[in-house]
Design a protein around this nucleic acid. Sequence first.
RNA 1: GGUCGCGUGGCCGAGGGGCUUAGGCACCGGUCUGCAAAACCGGUUACGGCGGUUCGAAUCCGCCCGCGACCUCCA
Length: 491
Amino acid sequence: MEQALYIHNSLTRKNEKFEPRRPPYVGLYVCGPTVYGEAHLGHARPAVTFDLLHRYLLHLGYRVRYVRNITDVGHLESDADQGEDKIAKKARLEKVEPMEIAEHYTRSYHHNMDQMNVLRPNIEPRASGHIIEQQQMVKKILEKGYGYVSNGSVYFDVEKYNREHNYGKLSGRNIEELRSNTRELEGQEEKKNPFDFALWKKASPEHIMQWPSPWSDGFPGWHLECSAMSTKYLGHPFDIHGGGMDLIFPHHDCEIAQSTAAEGEESVRYWMHNNMVTIAGQKMGKSLHNFITLNQFFSGDHELLDKAFSPMTIRFFTLQAHYRSPLDFSSEALQAAEKGLEKLLKAGEIIDQLKPGQQSDMDLDQLERDCYQAMNDDMNTPVLFSRLFEMVRFVNSVHQKQATIHRDDIDKLRGIYQHFVQDILGLERESQQEEGSRLTSELIEMILHIRLEAKKNKDFDTADKIRDRLKELGVIVKDTKEGFEWEIENE
RNA sequence: GGUCGCGUGGCCGAGGGGCUUAGGCACCGGUCUGCAAAACCGGUUACGGCGGUUCGAAUCCGCCCGCGACCUCCA
């Protein structure tokens, strides 16, 4: 692979050549879910985006350690009254242990991600399992003089940090702007400046999730877990940190500040951010009644959906847009994606049936170069798909004997398909009742042979009756020159 | 209000100063077919608005309109 991978670094806002610090090893950290509810599209997009990156890096031969956290503690309810721990709040409502809630939704998340063929990260650390590491980081920041204790809580001294470094460099904010824009909120009197953020927060007595610390019984500040866990598992500095665009400020700017304060230098070499998801042109939100969970997509059980959409369709649809563009979901667009995906998967099956000819009517080396070029250009999957669909057209033409392919090129074609469609894009046919279908297949074939006889005898009434009846049962029959083809309709 | 980003044909979605017919879906015509489906071939519909820079702008600049993310304890 001569070409080099370029990725868009949010820090410089430019596409940069990707060069790992210690090849062939690559450290990748991505902000994972807060497990207090079912996974929705806002979870699917970053998961699929960075799954693509993960898979591509593996394909290129890198040894990747992919870390994605599970946030199960410490984050406060914004619209809620008391600033009660989000998970604790839900637990009280449902009368179960907070960890039970976290566990439940973690499993649900895993299940949804498996359905979409998202490879599991190598490590999925939980914030609750890394309280010690987070406390150590707080200590380190205090020792270096970038934090201060106030009433049992520890805050990060943004002003001091900003004198030597650039706070807000990732989001393009500056401290003066923040000063003038900060809203008046309760509890600010503990802080030197309103824009200081918590490293450790003292818990109120009714707060369920809390841990002892030198400063108070409390819980770690929001941004700390990612800094602590990425350092622990990937070292310092590490290669790539990813997440949604909505996390750039304050989350990732705070991470930069914390790590830099603790370690003396920045910890992340490439920042990558996926764009957001909208539904029928609107942002997704519970109050807008367009909040759709992945399970609702898979079942079709939502008023905005005309039908169910398979996990693989959601994956394909997500990848059809570039990860840095906004992605708008609609029933109509998804139905188009469903057909496109089917066409692509079908072509994969046809490749195995191709008959070789004298020469090839398509330059497969060029095709392969084009595919790599698309991926290397900041993972331009829309362009990759346009190349792959050109390949699909060629495959179908050969299948219909309107084009030819040389024997050697069939293997090459199969390789390209395997690498790009299956390995990198992670698109595969969802297993449709594999077991017990052998008898079914043979029965269908037998019936179709009888139909072929009928056709030969010009008994089209019988032939059509068989085809219509099979269609009712979900079996699509297609006549060909040699005889017939059939397939089972989706769903 | 501030920062950043987006606005492409019926729908989705790349590209990004002249030449990409991008691609998918839909629609129309053709080939094939007993018919149909699929596939293949061909076709239609573009670059939010107004100015400017340029020999030339969808692509650069300005303003306007519309949409989105973030703006400190909500990943």
